[in-house]
Each structure stands twice: as structure tokens, then as C-alpha cells.
Design a binder for these strands. Structure first.
Length: 554
RNA sequence: GGGCCUGUGGCUUAGCCUGGACAUAGCGCCGGGCUUCUAACCCGGAUGCCGGGGGUUCGAAUCCCCCCAGGCCCGCCA
């Protein structure tokens, strides 16, 4: 509906002026939409923009297609303001469950995210990937796409060989209550220390890698065992973060099923192939200065080859491929895309996010320098529990714990998703543990507040005719929700939804403080309760798309 | 050395792709508001050469060029 109106206004302007790129801009505080077409016409018409705007506004007012909007010339601008008739139409949708769901689409989408190496627990950098990926996944589902979310398990890298070497050669017993992934990190860190002291170990690690690539059953079994244990640990963390994968795809499967070999044979025939000791692609004609190595001189494949095989498989089963990857993968991601196109396969769309570092520098699993997601979750739940206990001492402990879990999850997910992915960030405990404005709990609180009002109201007759400025402001925010979902999916930028949800909560809070709902009477009470219901529903849908629990009390 | 990303009040940040009306919000600071629907809230105030310099344009935080600073990458690692 807003979109349709937008198109209609745009058409009206184009028909009238003949300016093809007469785009509408945000009217800010002056109006809902505005056009600056008068500036562009000033030269050709040899008239002042103000005069042109006045004349155009007069003509636009006569256009029956846009009768629902108020047209007004203000200086050189022509402003468009939606009337309350428009707003009431939108509200009728917004009070219904599933508001913001877009029409079903046939395009099958596969989305890969997280895919962290299984050599230690997920840390606060990895979960930026998980949260961006999972939020995108939820937005895609809301936008009507059939979607599968995958985790690509790197089960045959050097890191895993180091882990396996550590378990074979070091004191590797698991400590009491030690989580699997933390256990693996401890052994991985110790093995790396040993390697620094003794270069002979590197040869042993290389042997392990050869064995696994050749499919030696005992070695493959060992690798799988440690990787599985690490993934079991990840599963707990991801569940705590409300992040879900539909399928775990194992890298080594692409060796076993012959797909890697098949793709290497195709790559060999490319004009860009350089087969010397290694097999590599020369992509310099596309601006890549380094060689893209596919196969080692000892005949084993490198990560890139398996990754190409994996993507070819994704392309065969899905229409669109989306990968969420760290900024460190930009170059290899671009090489992958380039190569896929050259062999006539679908190339992935890649969402890159910049790094999360610690105040003392970048994180490193190998050096043991990281803040694990588990530690963050434990700490934030503790903080949230104290907060809930202070505010709601009358609630029993189980209820307070449940609220604390939801609030903690909200704080973590929102803190991470609210920042544009291209911004590198420094992890800050104080900010991560903040429950105030511009936080997930702030939005949850607005939702709980709306629920509370509705709970006390009892039954009422829905009324969609809003009147006051505050009421209309809230309704216009609500009206934007479907476009926001569309935009997130189109631009692959989930932080847009985070910003929107916060703005909706802001607008509702202001309304709440100025316009009494329960104490008003008759039609006013009905229409305000209807508005509260629409806000509650839209906040709920927004929060759920952000992977945050829309709790009803807190 | 080359490539990509970032630089917006003391701190964090939206807007940049698709140029327009006094640059968005939070934290912190100052001043107000709970006998009133949940104060994890609201209202008001101070704080900006939008990294610097050039250019394009009637108009630049936004587009182009140069420079500076930070992050990431440039492996027979993954």
C-alpha cells in the first residue's frame, strides 16, 4: 500500500513534468514524501524554483490518482502527506497475525553462515556472523522465500589436524564439566605451543592431512570424532543464541563423493589454468594479482577446490546462493565468484562483515585470545537476572530466570545486529551488557508495555479512524514494516530492521506518555487500543524476525 | 608496495548506493517528570569545519580525484 502510493505519486510527477528521474525524497518533518523536481526544471523553464513548485502543486492537486494525499508547495519543495484514510487501511493489516509477511516466491535460496572452524568455541567475532546470518534467514522467510540454512563444516583443515595431533600426543583428558569445544580449544592451544618448540611436529601434522585426504579410515574417523565433539559444543551456543541451521555440510564429503576431483578436471580445461607443479588459475585479467591455487604439488586439493565443489553443488540445488563471511574472506570470495562465473555456474552473493576485535587487539583462537560466546551469554544472563530481580521481586525465581534468558539474548543479538556490517567494532563489555535505549531489551519493554495495556483493557471494538498527531505518527511507522522487510532482503542488510524496530518503539513510547489509552473513553479508547494492538503485533513480528523473544511481561 | 572497508559532538552510531529544506539517535553531561495505562520510560538543554584538501553541481555527509589515519587481505593455511 505505501509502495503503491509512492509509485502513483512518482508517476503523477513524471507525467506532469516529463522529468524521467524525478525521484521522491523523504519529507522529513515537513511531510511523508517530497519532490525537488522544481530545481531541475528551473534552468529549462527559466523560472524560479519556488514559482514552478507552486504551479506544479496546483496541477497535482487535481490528479484523482493521488486524491488520498495532501499536496502542498513549500518554497521550492512540493510536499505529500498521507491522510488518515490511508493510515486506517494499513492498520487493518497490522493488527492481524503475520503482518509483514510478503507474497510467497518460487526462488529457492540457500544461505550459509557461521561455518567457523571446529578448533575451539565460538567467540564474539563468530557470532557476528551467526547473528547477521540468522537475522537475514528470518527476513528471507518472512519475505516469502523457501530457504535452507547451511553450516559448512571445515573438517579437514590443518587446524583440525593439529587438534588430532594434540589428542594423540598430549595430556588431553577432559576436565570436569568442561564443554567439548572449550576442551578442544585447550588442546589446540597446547598443540600450537608444542609446534612452536618442535618443528618435527609439523611433519606429523602434514602426514595426518595426507592420510585424511587419501581417505585413511582410522584417520578420517579421528578427525570426524573431534570435529563432531566441537560441533556438539557449538550446538549449545547456537541454541542459546536462537540461531538455527537446517543442515551441516561436511567439507570432506566433497572429496569422498568425487565432486572435488570433477571440478578440478573442469578447472584444468580453463584457459586461465596453469598446471605446473601446482594447479592454479591466473585471474589477472580480472584484476586478481595473486594465483588462485587449486591443487598442491603433492596432488592434494586445497580449501579453494573443495569450496568450489561445494558451491557447484549448492548451485545445482538452489536458485540463489548467499554466503555470510568475514571481511578476511573478501579476496577468496571474489576469486570464487569469478571462477564460478567462468565455468558457467551460479556465483554466490556474499555478505561480508568487518572484524570484531578486543581492546587489546585482534582475537586469536590459536593464541587463546578471545571472549567466548558462552562466557558472554553466562555473564549477560547473570546481569539480566539481577536486573529482573531488582524490578520484579514479586515474581518467582523460575519466571525471573526465564525473563533473564530472553532479555540477555535480546541484548546480545541486538547489540550485534544494530551496527552496519561494514563497520569494524571493538568488543565492549559495558556496551554489550547495556539494557537501556537502543538495546534489545528496550524494544522488548515497549512490547511488554503494549501487552500489559491490552491485558488490562479487556474486550474492545476495533476502530481504525485515528485522529491525533501522535496516533498518526505511530500508524505511519507501523505502515513501513513490510517495506523494511523487503529492503532487508533486497540489500542483504539486517541492521535496517534493527534500526526500524527501535524507531517504532521510540514512537510508541512517546505516544504512550502523551495519550492515555485505558483512561480515555468511547471511540477514543477503542481507536487507541486498536493502535496499541497494531504496535504490539508489529513489534512482535519485528522482534521475532530479529530472533528475539517477544516476551509479554518483564 | 597493491587491493577492499571504515573515519559523522567526549564515546558509540543512522543517513552515503539512489545529491536537496535546520545531519539520526543513544551513552555521558546539565535541568525536569513516577498518588496517573510497566520510569528497562518520557520531556527540555549544551556539545558537529560529517578525517583533510581539491573538483562536479543551482545545491555535497552523500558523486569524482588526491592526501592522512585505523581495520582486513595479498600462502602448495582454512
Amino acid at each position: 500500500m505505501p509502495h503503491e502510493m509512492y509509485t502513483r505519486i512518482e508517476k503523477a510527477i513524471k507525467d506532469l513534468t516529463g522529468v524521467p528521474d524525478a525521484l521522491l525524497v523523504d519529507g522529513g518533518e515537513h511531510a511523508d514524501l517530497a519532490t525537488t523536481v522544481a530545481f531541475a526544471l528551473a534552468k529549462q523553464k527559466k523560472q524560479a524554483p519556488v514559482k514552478i513548485a507552486q504551479d506544479l502543486a496546483l496541477e497535482l492537486k487535481k490528479n484523482p490518482d493521488i486524491a488520498m494525499v495532501t499536496v502542498e508547495a513549500k518554497g521550492p519543495y512540493i510536499n505529500f502527506t498521507f491522510g488518515s484514510a490511508f493510515v486506517s487501511e494499513v492498520l487493518k493489516d497490522a493488527v492481524r497475525p503475520g503482518y509483514g509477511n510478503l507474497p510467497k516466491k518460487p526462488t529457492r535460496v540457500v544461505l550459509e553462515h557461521t561455518s567457523a572452524n571446529p578448533n575451539g568455541p565460538l567467540h564474539v567475532g563468530h557470532i557476528r556472523n551467526s547473528i547477521i546470518g540468522d537475522t537475514l534467514a528470518r527476513a528471507f522467510r518472512k519475505a516469502g522465500y523457501p530457504l535452507e540454512v547451511q553450516y559448512y563444516v571445515n573438517d579437514m583443515g590443518r587446524q583440525i589436524a593439529i587438534v588430532v595431533w594434540g589428542f594423540d600426543n598430549l595430556d588431553s583428558a577432559r576436565q570436569d564439566n568442561e564443554k567439548e569445544d572449550a576442551h578442544i580449544a585447550r588442546i589446540y592451544i597446547a598443540a600450537n605451543r608444542a609446534i612452536e618448540k618442535d618443528e618435527g611436529i609439523t611433519r606429523q601434522v602434514n602426514t595426518l592431512m595426507q592420510l585424511v585426504e587419501n581417505g585413511d579410515p582410522a584417520t578420517v574417523k579421528k578427525f570426524r570424532k573431534e570435529v563432531s565433539r566441537c560441533l556438539d559444543g557449538f550446538a549449545v551456543t547456537l541454541k542459546d543464541l536462537n540461531v538455527r541451521h537446517d543442515r551441516f555440510v561436511w567439507e570432506s564429503d566433497f572429496i569422498r563423493n568425487g565432486n572435488t576431483e570433477r571440478i578440478i578436471n573442469r578447472l584444468k580445461r580453463m584457459p586461465q589454468a596453469r598446471e605446473e607443479e601446482t594447479l592454479a588459475l591466473d585471474l589477472s585479467e580480472f584484476g586478481f594479482t595473486n594465483k588462485y591455487v587449486i591443487r598442491r604439488s603433492d596432488g592434494t586439493s586445497v580449501y579453494a577446490a573443495r569450496d568450489l565443489a561445494y558451491h557447484a553443488w549448492k548451485g545445482a540445488n538452489f536458485d540463489r546462493i548467499i554466503d555470510v563471511l568475514g571481511a578476511d574472506h573478501k579476496l577468496i570470495g571474489a576469486q570464487l565468484q569469478c571462477t564460478m562465473k567462468l565455468i558457467g555456474e551460479k556465483a554466490p552473493e556474499i555478505v561480508h562483515f568487518e572484524f570484531v576485535s578486543l581492546p587489546e587487539g585482534s582475537m586469536s583462537t590459536r593464541a587463546g585470545k578471545f571472549v567466548s560466546a558462552d562466557d558472554l551469554i553466562t555473564e549477560i544472563r547473570k546481569r539480566a537476572f539481577d536486573e529482573v530481580t531488582a524490578r520484579r521481586p514479586e515474581l518467582d525465581e523460575a519466571t525471573r530466570k526465564a525473563i533473564a534468558r530472553s532479555v540477555g539474548l535480546a541484548a546480545i543479538r541486538y547489540d550485534i545486529v544494530k551496527v552496519s556490517p561494514e563497520k569494524s567494532t571493538v568488543f565492549d563489555w559495558k556496551e554489550a551488557l547495556d539494557f537501556e535505549r537502543q538495546s534489545g531489551p528496550y524494544i522488548q519493554y515497549a512490547h511488554a508495555r503494549a501487552c500489559s495495556i491490552l491485558g488490562k483493557a479487556g474486550s474492545f471494538t476495533e476502530c481504525f479512524e485515528l485522529e491525533t498527531e501522535q496516533e498518526i505518527a505511530v500508524a505511519k511507522k507501523i505502515a513501513r514494516f513490510p517495506e523494511v522487510i523487503e529492503q532487508v532482503v533486497a540489500e542483504l542488510r539486517p541492521h535496517i530492521l534493527a534500526v526500524y524496530a527501535r524507531e517504532l518503539a521510540d514512537t510508541f513510547n512517546t505516544f504512550y506518555h502523551f495519550e492515555p489509552v485505558l483512561k480515555s473513553e468511547g471511540k477514543v479508547r477503542d481507536r487507541r487500543l486498536t493502535l496499541v494492538k497494531a504496535v504490539q503485533n508489529t513489534l512482535k513480528e519485528s522482534l521475532q524476525t530479529l530472533g528475539i523473544d517477544a516476551i509479554e511481561t518483564m
